[in-house]
């Protein structure tokens, strides 16, 4: 830490880290993936894999 720029850079990093720590401390993280997203993704993947195999994957 040897110059004004370094000090300000460290302050900027600190500001960013604190912003995320505050978000982490809240009960709800805005825009986070929810259980419904995970279920929808699992169902979509399963339908794609099984559907594609049944319709075209078998020789």
């Amino acid at each position: 830490m040897n110059s004004q720029v370094d000090t300000e850079r460290a302050q900027d990093l600190e500001r960013r880290l604190r912003a995320y720590e505050e978000l982490e401390g809240r009960a709800h993280w805005p825009g986070a993936l929810k259980a419904t997203d995970v279920i929808a993704l699992a169902v979509l993947t399963l339908v794609m894999v099984v559907g594609a195999y049944v319709l075209g994957g078998q020789p």
Binding site: T45, V49, A52
Partner: peptide
């Protein structure tokens, strides 16, 4: 097409 869909989604 089946291989493309299965492979890419995984």
């Amino acid at each position: 097409i089946a291989a493309i869909i299965i492979g890419n989604i995984i």
